[in-house]
Write a protein that binds this DNA or RNA. Structure first.
Lengths: 149, 149
DNA sequence: TTCACTGCAAACCTTTTGCAATTCT
DNA sequence: AGAATTGCAAAAGGTTTGCAGTGAA
């Protein structure tokens, strides 16, 4: 089970979801396309390949896929990318080394990275990954002292 | 110059923008309201206080204010918060210790934090700030090796 | 067979645009 | 005066909802 297609099917079944034809189509699509895209972009690209898919269905499927960790939504672009670090188990609450991305503002290329020290990370990014960091977004989501009670 | 109102006026003039009445209204509003809000929420709150403001104008002003560092847009909420760490100079390219937020998923309370080590940060958040981190978003924006040429 | 899922239409919400009127500097 | 900014209306996008019909388990 090395490819995205196989993993995705396994994850879907592990979550007791149905492997329907639009889902299969989207999985095959994500297997071939690694750049972040909006539901409309996906719909149009599929259409240009002679495949028909409803945008609403794509919305719903991407939502599902995000919940089970098959795709990730890039907040700053409003686009979805397939997630390569798929785990069959449920997602841990804190994905420390996951969902860190380098996003090119120009061509929207997305690279997944890991590591938790921002200073070290920025050095690595600049030198090894040859990516020029202009700004970053770091937002922690959870429950504040009041709401967690 | 200790308050937000004074700082904001200074920043606006430093950027050669005009201190118009809707801008003043918004500054006064942000001075009183520290929770993140959408343009519509701001419009409605102002209206309930007997103040009239056009949503489109609020959109445009918040856009301007974000550019000059008076407010920050919380990506995960689509809402704006006023930025308390205002600098009169232009923003540096890498705001290392800036724009790190704790966002309550329940009440949308936003707390600004600083520090660059995620592990240490999460410990501090858990113990000192009494915030339960459920997940975080870290996205670097810039130019990839191809596009920076 | 049954329930999850899809497809279509329509509603809804958010954000942007154009332009004439206004108002800072 | 001159340029920036606003207000209104309207368009343009993006996302969600409802529901009848379809299809996977």
């Amino acid at each position: 089970m090395k490819n995205f297609v196989g993993k995705a099917a396994a994850v879907i079944q592990a979550h007791q979801l149905r492997l329907t034809s639009p889902r299969k189509m989207l999985i095959a699509f994500l297997d071939e396309n690694t750049s972040p895209m909006t539901p409309y972009e996906i719909r149009d690209l599929l259409k240009s390949q002679g495949q028909k898919a409803d945008v609403v269905t794509i919305y719903r499927i991407l939502d599902e896929f995000e919940k089970i960790g098959l795709v990730h939504k890039v907040m700053t672009l409003g686009r979805y990318v397939r997630c390569d670090e798929i785990e069959l188990e449920a997602h841990c609450e804190k994905d420390d080394d996951c969902h860190h991305y380098l996003i090119c503002e120009n061509c929207h290329k997305v690279e997944e990275i890991s590591g938790e020290n921002l200073h070290d990370l920025e050095k690595v990014i600049a030198t090894q990954m040859k990516f020029r960091v202009k700004r970053h977004f770091l937002e922690f989501l959870g429950l504040c002292s009041k709401c967690k009670k």
